[in-house]
């Protein structure tokens, strides 16, 4: 397959994965994962622990390498050049960094920068990476902080915030880069139950604002309410994909039913 995929002609497709494979130590982690994610779509990725959800999510911004397959974001192959022989050659760190600027990633454990104030966490990458004038970036950071309901925490250290607050800052930090796509890896799994709602609310608003999102989560209420599409993974494969209504009320794959019966 050439480096300019057919999907270039259809710009509404933001992420396109075709037979993405990954193995570690001879063990397959991702096997022939193929899917397309349209601009503005909210996709929720579910499946049992060890299914490969995190790994797949991380391949989309090349935090994880792939062995074979084609993965495009916004028409550009992610992480590699493909030779005529079909071999994948990893991109330079400069190219990788450029690609990642367009993709926000929210981690399970927030990974805020502890030596910076909350506000600096948000404006740092726009200033250092995007080269936006600091004044504009700081103003933007304040706006984002207000948007996630934490305007009064600007000068605090991340460590002095609750988990839910930290995760909201992490979302604001991702949004500050004005990404085309936001990836969430179990953003509420490390939180006390009473803080899950505040983070999901921020994500719901983001979805309403037409942000393209891929969310790994075990919050089935969120999936049912917000997802345009649910992808079910098991043992490194996509075993089923469909609307929330289809997946929850009429699952086709018995392993989907068995997973849902355990979690619901």
């Amino acid at each position: 397959m050439p480096d300019s995929p057919a999907t270039l002609a259809a710009p509404e497709v933001l992420v396109s994965a075709n037979k993405v494979c990954r193995s570690l130590g001879g063990r397959p982690i991702l096997s022939d994962v193929s899917t397309e994610i349209r601009r503005g779509e909210v996709v929720v990725l579910i499946g049992p622990s060890g299914a490969g959800k995190t790994t797949f999510l991380r391949t989309i911004n090349h935090l994880e390498q792939i062995d074979s397959g084609d993965l495009f974001v916004n028409g550009h192959r992610v992480g590699y050049r493909k030779l005529d022989s079909g071999r994948l050659i990893e991109d330079s760190t400069r190219t990788l960094a450029k690609q990642r600027e367009e993709i926000g990633f929210v981690f399970q454990h927030f990974n805020l920068f502890p030596h910076m104030s909350v506000l600096e966490n948000i404006w740092h990458a726009p200033v250092r990476v995007r080269k936006i004038p600091k004044q504009a970036a700081v103003a933007d950071a304040r706006r984002l902080l207000a948007r996630v309901g934490l305007a009064d925490k600007a000068d605090k250290r991340p460590a002095s915030l609750s988990g839910g607050q930290q995760q909201r800052v992490a979302i604001a930090r991702g949004l500050a880069m004005k990404p085309e796509l936001m990836l969430f890896d179990e953003p509420t799994s490390a939180l006390d139950p009473e803080m899950i709602g505040e983070v999901l609310d921020v994500m719901k608003e983001l979805a309403q604002d037409q942000m393209t999102m891929v969310v790994v989560t075990h919050e089935m209420g969120f999936a049912r309410e917000v997802a345009d599409r649910i992808i079910v993974m098991d043992a490194g494969r996509i075993i089923e994909s469909g609307s929330p209504d289809q997946i929850f009320n009429n699952p086709q794959n018995p392993r989907t039913s068995s997973f849902l019966s355990k979690i619901l």
Binding site: N61, L63, T93, R94, L96, A97, K98, R100, E101, I103, G104, F105, F107, H109, N111, L112, F113, H124, A125, R128, V129, R130, R173, G174, M177
Partner: peptide
């Protein structure tokens, strides 16, 4: 995770 967060924000090593 600090390195990963930096990478994800488009920072080079």
């Amino acid at each position: 995770g600090q390195t990963e967060a930096s990478m994800a924000l488009g920072m080079r090593p």
